[in-house]
């Protein structure tokens, strides 16, 4: 029966739209490229600026300050292992890509989350879009990313942002909505403006939840690293990909292990960032 109905030209429509965008909004894509490229380069440069060992000690110290000595010790050993295996530069590139994707996700995601938190209509429109973004196989994002931004790190960042932004939006929305009704009433009753209410009451109280969302975003961005390397993003993903193509189990394991170490360090670091602030509200 399905054969009797002509196939809907969905693929054609999408291609038309994409080529129109390419032709007419190309300047926008160039502009975005010109923002992302230097950001990634900057983060990489920061991580590569000092001698590796000094950077490792500094990161471990930061971890100690933000959470516990146990995690600091793990960070120290883990990062030294990465350096020893010779993946320091690739790790720096990967971390830079993840950080850039995260920063962009926060800049875009938190305001959208706030909008959803304050407005039911916005939430009802945006929630299905987020579902779509998250259920679509991550590979699919690579195609438009490559078309608009060609090969390299930039489309990798873009694909990571699309894939990893939803948790930040969702949890910001949740955090705003979780602020108890009587606190909102109290804030209104004392004559707060909408923005005073947001910055003095809602955001501070939603902070822990928002941080949980950002933590998830970082993890998702990291999980995109290997996929992004397929379109030419530099870093550990590239090393894994090469190892897979050449069936070098040992090299693949090393690079994979490095990703896991970075994942654990970033996870612990950002997890404790939210909680730590909750415990010490006065600084």
């Amino acid at each position: 029966m399905t054969e009797s109905i002509p196939k809907l030209p969905l693929a054609d429509v999408v291609e038309v739209i994409v080529s129109w965008l390419q032709a007419n909004v190309g300047w926008l894509f160039d502009f975005i490229s010109n923002l992302i490229e230097p950001t990634v380069a900057f983060f990489t440069a920061v991580l590569m600026f000092l001698p590796t060992l000094v950077t490792i000690v500094l990161i471990a110290a930061l971890t100690w300050w933000l959470s516990s000595w146990r995690i600091a010790l793990f960070t120290l050993i883990g990062l030294m292992l990465i350096a020893n295996l010779g993946y320091w530069e690739e790790s720096a590139q990967t971390t830079a890509l993840v950080l850039t994707a995260t920063v962009i996700s926060i800049i875009i995601g938190v305001p959208i989350g706030i909008l959803c938190g304050k407005n039911d209509t916005a939430r009802n429109i945006i929630t299905p879009i987020l579902d779509f973004m998250q259920t679509m196989p991550a590979f699919v994002y690579l195609v438009p990313a490559v078309i608009f931004f060609s090969l390299g790190t930039v489309p990798g960042v873009i694909a990571s942002v699309v894939f990893s932004m939803p948790p930040t939006i969702r949890l910001t929305n949740l955090g705003i909505r979780q602020v108890p009704e009587d606190l909102i009433e109290a804030s209104d009753a004392f004559g707060s403006t909408s923005s005073q209410k947001l910055f003095k009451i809602q955001l501070p109280l939603a902070k822990t939840t928002i941080m949980a969302g950002i933590n998830q975003t970082i993890m998702l961005a990291l999980s995109m690293v290997v996929i992004a390397s397929m379109i030419g993003a530099r870093g550990l993903g590239e090393a894994v990909l090469t190892a897979v193509q050449r069936i070098e189990v040992g090299t693949g394991f090393e690079a994979g292990l490095a990703i896991v170490i970075i994942a654990i360090v970033l996870d612990r670091l950002t997890q404790n960032l939210g909680q730590g602030n909750g415990q010490h509200p006065r600084n």
């Binding site: 108890p180 009587d182 009433e185 109290a186 009753a189 009451i201």
Partner: peptide, 9 residues
């Protein structure tokens, strides 16, 4: 206004 459940921030 003073609230039942205090509503302190």
């Amino acid at each position: 206004m003073v609230f039942q459940r205090f509503a302190l921030f």
